[in-house]
Design a protein around this nucleic acid. Structure first.
Lengths: 124, 124
DNA sequence: TAACTGTACTATTACATATAATACAGTATA
DNA sequence: TATACTGTATTATATGTAATAGTACAGTTA
């Protein structure tokens, strides 16, 4: 379900953030679903629980999940994430990455096709 | 020309990398142009020369600039950057960012317009 | 020769990451 | 009620990266 890549230069908690977020974006995790507990995921990945806490706290700040004392962490809804999202930063990242791909010779059709695929596959 | 944002959580050398790269992508710096020397940019930003070296070395590894002993750093050509680029990582970043924007309710037209603008404005 | 360039190295400080261990509070269930 | 889960909080420690400081050497230009 969730695994770590030790060749990845990013920090462990960042990788966990991205993996959980990806599961939510893909629809593998839906609103209200309970996700793995802090201790459960930590022992599953053989890492420290505090590292999971750090990742979950960040996803909570981004509005993607929420916690309930004694019960666990659950997936929040799209509205929650949209309310807390930093659209400025997201568009900046998108613009910078696409500009670089353009500069490096990527065909516009290639990118347009990618956009089409994403907006078609995403269940909304 | 190049400035630092201390509210930015990213490291200084990363910010410098991105700013120089942005100038190249925008066409403000063209192939063969000499860029600010290590010591010149360091004293201009009131930071340590070693930090500039780190940023320039990374841009050199990405094929965006090259150095000549005793003369300085110069802007390399598109082919040089394209040869060293990690297209897999770039497309991964693009896909992840665009998927998140889609999930958060961004209209496809908004993104398509952004792509059109980038491929139109970029002088190739 | 003098004043620039890049390059290389050591030492030091500061900060973020990750681990370890412990404790407390809320929830669910036998 | 007792037990075993949940999240939360705290302190301490080790490690690696980022950034600074200083020095030195080699190539280029005027």
């Amino acid at each position: 379900m969730i695994s770590l890549d030790f060749r990845d230069s990013r920090s462990i908690y960042e990788q966990i953030c991205d993996k959980v977020k990806k599961l939510i974006l893909e629809g593998a995790l839906s609103e209200g679903d309970k996700i793995m507990s802090v201790r459960e995921l930590a022992s599953s990945l053989t890492i420290n629980p505090n590292t999971i806490v750090k990742a979950y706290k960040q996803l909570e700040n981004e509005g993607y999940i929420y916690s309930v004392q004694g019960k666990g962490y659950f997936v929040a809804g799209r509205k929650s994430a949209a309310k807390d999202a930093d659209f400025g930063a997201l568009f900046d990242t998108a613009r910078a990455t696409l500009s670089e791909l353009c500069f490096l010779g990527t065909e516009k059709d290639t990118v347009t096709r990618m956009v089409d695929d994403i907006w078609k596959e995403m269940k909304r």
